[in-house]
Design a protein around this nucleic acid. Sequence first.
RNA 1: GCGCUCGUAGCUCAACGGAUAGAGCAUCUGAUUACGGAUCAGAAGGUUGGGGGUUCGAUUCCCUCCGAGCGCACCA
Length: 553
Amino acid sequence: MLADDLAFAIAAALKVAELPSPPSGIEIVPTRNREHGDWQTNTALILAKIVGAPPQDVAAAVVAALKAAPPAHVERIEIAGPGFINFFLAPTWLHDVLRAVVATGPNFGHGDAYAGMRINLEFVSANPTGPLHAGGGRWVAVGDAIANLLAAQSAEVHREYYLNDAGTQLDVFAESLMARYRGEAPPENGYHGGYLVEMAATMRSELGDEVDETLAAAWGYRVVVDALRDDLARIGVHFDTWFSERTLHERGDVAAVLDELRAAGHTFEQDGAEWLASESLGDQRNRVLVRTNGTTTYLTNDLAYHRDKLRRGWDHLIDIWGADHHGQVKSLQVGMRALGIGTDEVPEPEVILGQLVKLERGGELVRLSKRAGNIITLADILDDVDPDVARLTFLLQSIDTTLTFDLDVVTSQSMENPVYYVQYAHARVASIARRAAAAGITRVPLADVDLSVLVHERELDLLRSLAEYPEMLRGAAELRAPHRVTTWVREFASRLHGFYRDCRVMTDDADLTQARLWLAESVRIGLAGALGILGVGAPDVMERLATDEEVDE
RNA sequence: GCGCUCGUAGCUCAACGGAUAGAGCAUCUGAUUACGGAUCAGAAGGUUGGGGGUUCGAUUCCCUCCGAGCGCACCA
């Protein structure tokens, strides 16, 4: 790609100018402002400090050497601002981009930043005590997209769901289910959701009138897990492993972890409980490992769980958690360190924290609590909107920001969702191809097409977006920021719509038609690729909106 | 009180430490005998919460203050 050519040329120029090769911090990137050319580098600004010369002088020396052996496509090189070196390129460099997109196909933009890395990505992992709530959809969409991003950088990615099926929450759940089964109200601290009433009725019809608590717990657990799986399937997310916490207890993994922590001298007894001396390791405070009643805490079990993931061969562990769990991050990492994990070879678990979702309806905040029972589930959302709409809505903004999910806007006014804007772009491109085929116009091999006719700003903008796509994907993967893909694809779709408006593909000019058909094909690849990362469909046709008149009839 | 995260246009949000901070919505003004108008073009809108600091350069990094969300269990 061009960036490599420029980097190579700059490195060579530095040698000629007898300047040191710069350390990290140099960038060779597309300009944001067209007036500054097509690509820019801050090489001279970085080097100036090292060699103790004015940036302008350093830039002048580099540019002189560059001009002696200009990289391909470069028409003009300028020094501007505090010492930027700006490259003005012939449009031919973008025609190369088009060829690269078509040659690579669906995997265009993918990289190898994480080649050889075996990543276990755990996300959602909602307690099996009820249906997924609407806000949890954020982790479904974000987790799946991050998995796609990592895989696009050649990592082997394993999607995992952790079922907390051994704790007291499940007991409380079973008690609540039994209470409903007997026609009573759930216990004070139990689950009051209406779904338990329905479940209890189903249980009675399936299992009869002689159900005891043990049977109810087993049956309820199975039903809830099946429901979780179904909801996830509806939105198109598949987990490779559903890991049961019970396994850890049954196999003795939890006991083994405790023994190791004791042997390493990281535990102590106090107030009848056994503690992890985590404060001395950097945690906010010490944490209980074994309660007074002899049972282990969530932390102890989680340590055993994460170590199991490593033992299963995953060398990089990533958890996606809601911000309400941020207090546990340090405990987990410090605990793993106490187990001797968290070395240079084996990094400690990485935790991606995401801010919570705020649900609104009619401008009013909707308070959600699985226990209180006033839940709005992900299934409720999917009853009203297409999974694509739900997914993109969750992927519109950075996970560092609180997401306000307005149920009225997303459902009743769903046509305003940007997903349609982007999908429409894809449908338009597909439509062009259909029209061409219907008119008997077929694309000749790309090698035989003269792309130099693609000089319209609309055309070049599309190709510029495609040129930036690989670097955008890499950055989104590294930052675990799928919303960057959303931002990119919205911009790209906007450029397609602009192109569509100003540039007719099929004209009497056969050469131009061929070039634009191939441009359309490269755009299709880019749109489909980005939407694929996001887990959003790229339809060839879209149902026409009903007009007001049609609605009236 | 302590900790984590956040604060950008009227609203919702973008912006690898880079040049003149960008989109959408809302507001105003325009565009369609053509490949799907679910579209496009333009205008207006900003002291990036306040104040310091580092840097050639700060929305971005550091300190401090203000404000918001979330944590601070022998629940998960």
